[in-house]
Design a protein around this nucleic acid. Structure first.
Lengths: 207, 207
DNA sequence: ACCGAACGAACGATCGTTCGTTCGTTCGGA
DNA sequence: TCCGAACGAACGAACGATCGTTCGTTCGGT
C-alpha cells in the first residue's frame, strides 16, 4: 500500500483542498450507511462540503465510485488470504489466521467492508462478475483449509467442509452488522470469542 | 398491437382480479431482489402486469408496502419464539426449536425475510424503531435460552450468552444470503447441519 | 346503473450528469 | 520582482430522465 500524504484530517477546515481520496472515503461512509441507491451525488457533495456537481472534478461518475470502494474492500480481504497462505502452521493455525485477519479488516475498514458485502449487487455487470468470482475464491480458501484440517486429523472428519465454510463466513460477515467502533471489545478480543465459537460451539472451549 | 393483452397470469388461478395480497407478494419479491430504493412503483406495476399508477388502487404508497412486507417478516419470526416458549423441554431443546423454526421461516418466506433483514433501515422512523425493538427482543430470547442452558448445566458455563446469541443469529441470518430454493438440502436438513455446527463447531458432532 | 380496477396524462421533486464560468494558486519568462 | 498564462477545484444553472404520487377517465363484471 503506501501513499501516505499530508492528508491528516478527513473533513474539518473549509477551503482545504479535497482530493480523490477524500471523495472515495466519503462515498465509503455514505454507501455503507444509506446504501448505494440511497446516496445521491448531492448527498456526497454535502458530506464533502461542496456541490454535487463538484464531485465530478474528482471522479468520472457514481458507478466509478462504487467500483472503487468495493474494489478496495475486496483487496483487503484478499490480502488476508495471501497472508494466511504464507504461514507454515497447521491447517487449524491457518484457519485461525484467516478468522483473525478477517475480523481485523472489518474492524479497520468497516465502511468498505459493508459496501463490499451489501452493495456489490448494484455494480455494473462486468465488475459484479469479478467480485462474485473473488468471493467464491475466498470461500474456497476456507473450504480447502478445512479439508486440510480433516486430512491432518485436527478437524473432525464427519463435518462437511463446504457448508462449514459457509457457517464460519456467516459468523465473520455478520460482524459488519453488529460491530460498533465504540464497543468494549478490541478486534483481537472479538476474534478470540469467534474462534472459540467456531472451534467448539456452545459446548465451550476448555481454554 | 393494441395495448392490453398479455394478461397471462403472473399470480394465482383467477385470471384477472389482482388483490392487495398480490401486490404485497410482488413487492416482497422485488424489494428482496433489487432493494427498496432500487425498486420503483413502475417496476412493481410491470411485475403485476399493470401500470405503476394502478398499484395505488391497492395500497396507499410505497412506504406502506415496505412497512407491510417487513411487518409480515417480523411476524413470522415472532411466531417461532412464541412456539419455542410453549414447549416444556430443556433449554437446549428450546434453543434447537428456535434454530429449526428460524430456518423454516427463511426457507418458507425468503423474500419477506430478506426484506426484513436488509431493508428495515429504510422504514419511516416510527416503524423502524418498532422493528429494532422487536429484533432486540428476538436476540434476548436466544440470550436467555442460552443462560437457562448454562444454569441447567447443559451448556458450557464459560461462554458469554450475549455474544454467543449474536454468533448463532449470525449463522441463521446468513441463510438468507446463500440459500437457494433449488438447493439440494431441505429446510430441516439445513437446520440439522446448522445445529451441529452451533453445538460443537468444527470439533464435529458425535451424531 | 353501479363500483372497483386499471388506465394514462400530468405534477413537482429529485436523480445523475454536463457545461460554461469563476476563483485562487502555481510557475516560467522578462 | 513583476506579470500573465495555465491549471485544477469548485460553482451554479441547466439538461433529460425518472422518481412517487395524483386525478379524471375508461373499462368490465355484477
Amino acid at each position: 500500500m503506501g501513499s501516505i500524504d499530508a492528508n491528516a484530517s478527513t473533513s474539518a477546515g473549509l477551503g482545504v483542498a479535497r482530493t480523490r481520496e477524500d471523495v472515495v472515503a466519503a462515498a465509503s461512509r455514505l454507501f455503507a450507511k444509506r446504501g448505494f441507491h440511497g446516496t445521491s451525488m448531492r448527498d456526497l457533495g454535502e458530506e464533502l462540503g461542496m456541490l454535487g456537481s463538484s464531485v465530478y472534478s474528482h471522479v468520472r461518475g457514481k458507478n466509478e465510485l462504487l467500483v472503487e470502494v468495493i474494489g478496495r474492500g475486496a483487496e483487503f480481504f484478499n490480502e488476508v488470504v495471501a497472508a494466511a497462505n504464507e504461514t507454515d502452521g497447521s491447517a487449524v493455525d491457518r484457519l485461525r489466521d484467516l478468522v483473525y485477519g478477517h475480523v481485523r479488516v472489518v474492524v479497520g475498514h468497516i465502511d468498505e467492508a459493508r459496501t463490499f458485502l451489501f452493495e456489490s449487487r448494484f455494480l455494473p455487470t462486468g465488475d459484479r462478475l469479478k467480485i462474485v468470482e473473488m468471493r467464491d475464491a475466498y470461500e474456497a480458501a476456507y473450504r480447502q483449509t478445512i479439508q486440510d484440517g480433516i486430512d491432518e486429523g485436527s478437524i473432525a472428519p464427519d463435518i462437511d467442509p463446504g457448508i462449514t465454510a459457509i457457517f464460519i463466513l456467516s459468523v465473520l460477515n455478520a460482524l459488519i452488522r453488529w460491530y460498533r467502533p465504540s464497543g468494549e471489545r478490541s478486534a483481537d478480543e472479538t476474534a478470540a470469542e469467534m474462534w472459540s465459537f467456531i472451534e467448539n460451539g456452545i459446548s465451550g472451549g476448555s481454554s
